[in-house]
Simulated scan of single mutants.
Amino acid sequence: MSRVRTRPTRDDTREKLFEAAARVFEEQGIGGASIEAIAAAAGFTRGAFYSNFTSKDELIFAMLEDHVEQSVRRCLDLLAQHQNLADFLEALRTMDRSRQDPLGRSPLLHMEMILFVARAEKRRPELAKRLRARRKLITDIVTATAKNGGRNNALNPEWTGAVVLALEDGFRLHRLIDPETTPADSFLRAITDLHRAIGVASA
């Protein structure tokens, strides 16, 4: 009886490279990590790496893109189930983060990759696309939850999206620097408090 060999799909290969790259980046630093080390950590040859990405920079952009896409998908799924902002925030708080992509599981690596890309001016437009996608996601959430809460005119969704995103990144950085005084749920607690304050002010 012949044995059928199943070749990994392109998505499987990319996912393994993402996971391997995250481990190598954390161990060796993004700048010091080589393509050979990433490919070996994933169990692939150098040729397998180049069949998916032309460079380490392209791999990094792909990891950031994948992180944004997964974040958008996850949040929109939650929003479809919890259109009230308080319920949505609670669903975010209790979400299982162990199954997220490498950047979702490691805020430090996520921040390091953003800084690595931002240091080169020519790379910044690509990074800006990811920033706009994250901002649009928050703007859509603000719009949907405000409508469901009867506050259509209470907030400027675009500006609120920008403020909320800056708040999230700020708390992420603060937690990396001083985790003792910055609990893991600081961002969600802040958004919950702001939501309550806006509710009182508009009542």
Score class of each variant (00 low, 15 high):
residue 4 V to P: 03
residue 5 R to G: 06
residue 9 T to V: 07
residue 9 T to N: 08
residue 12 D to N: 03
residue 13 T to M: 12
residue 16 K to I: 10
residue 17 L to C: 12
residue 19 E to D: 11
residue 20 A to K: 13
residue 20 A to T: 00
residue 21 A to L: 04
residue 21 A to V: 00
residue 22 A to I: 07
residue 22 A to N: 07
residue 25 F to I: 02
residue 27 E to N: 10
residue 28 Q to C: 13
residue 29 G to P: 02
residue 29 G to T: 09
residue 31 G to Y: 05
residue 31 G to L: 03
residue 33 A to S: 13
residue 34 S to P: 04
residue 34 S to T: 15
residue 35 I to E: 05
residue 39 A to H: 12
residue 39 A to V: 12
residue 39 A to P: 03
residue 47 G to L: 06
residue 48 A to D: 03
residue 50 Y to P: 01
residue 52 N to H: 12
residue 55 S to I: 15
residue 56 K to D: 03
residue 57 D to N: 15
residue 62 A to S: 14
residue 63 M to A: 05
residue 66 D to F: 04
residue 67 H to K: 07
residue 68 V to F: 12
residue 70 Q to Y: 08
residue 70 Q to C: 07
residue 71 S to V: 15
residue 72 V to I: 13
residue 75 C to T: 15
residue 77 D to K: 15
residue 77 D to G: 12
residue 78 L to N: 02
residue 78 L to Y: 00
residue 78 L to S: 08
residue 80 A to S: 14
residue 81 Q to E: 14
residue 81 Q to L: 14
residue 82 H to D: 01
residue 83 Q to P: 10
residue 87 D to K: 04
residue 88 F to L: 14
residue 88 F to S: 02
residue 90 E to G: 07
residue 94 T to Y: 02
residue 94 T to N: 10
residue 95 M to Y: 08
residue 96 D to G: 09
residue 96 D to N: 14
residue 97 R to S: 07
residue 97 R to G: 07
residue 98 S to D: 09
residue 99 R to F: 04
residue 100 Q to L: 07
residue 102 P to R: 01
residue 104 G to D: 13
residue 104 G to T: 02
residue 104 G to A: 10
residue 106 S to A: 03
residue 106 S to G: 00
residue 107 P to C: 04
residue 108 L to D: 04
residue 108 L to C: 03
residue 115 L to G: 04
residue 115 L to C: 08
residue 116 F to P: 00
residue 116 F to M: 08
residue 116 F to Q: 13
residue 118 A to L: 11
residue 119 R to C: 15
residue 120 A to E: 13
residue 120 A to L: 06
residue 120 A to V: 10
residue 121 E to Q: 11
residue 121 E to Y: 15
residue 122 K to M: 10
residue 123 R to G: 00
residue 123 R to P: 07
residue 125 P to T: 05
residue 127 L to R: 00
residue 128 A to G: 07
residue 128 A to W: 15
residue 128 A to N: 08
residue 130 R to P: 02
residue 131 L to T: 11
residue 134 R to C: 05
residue 134 R to Q: 11
residue 139 T to H: 02
residue 140 D to Y: 07
residue 140 D to E: 13
residue 140 D to K: 03
residue 141 I to V: 13
residue 143 T to A: 14
residue 144 A to G: 03
residue 144 A to Q: 06
residue 145 T to L: 12
residue 147 K to R: 12
residue 147 K to N: 11
residue 148 N to K: 11
residue 150 G to Q: 01
residue 150 G to C: 07
residue 150 G to E: 06
residue 156 N to E: 06
residue 157 P to N: 04
residue 157 P to G: 05
residue 158 E to Y: 14
residue 159 W to S: 09
residue 160 T to C: 13
residue 162 A to S: 09
residue 164 V to W: 00
residue 165 L to R: 02
residue 168 E to G: 06
residue 170 G to V: 15
residue 172 R to T: 05
residue 175 R to M: 04
residue 176 L to W: 14
residue 176 L to T: 03
residue 183 P to R: 01
residue 183 P to Y: 10
residue 184 A to E: 09
residue 184 A to V: 08
residue 186 S to R: 15
residue 187 F to Q: 00
residue 188 L to S: 02
residue 189 R to G: 03
residue 190 A to G: 01
residue 190 A to P: 02
residue 190 A to V: 12
residue 191 I to Y: 05
residue 192 T to A: 13
residue 193 D to F: 11
residue 197 A to S: 09
residue 197 A to H: 11
residue 198 I to T: 05
residue 200 V to S: 04
residue 201 A to D: 02
residue 201 A to G: 05
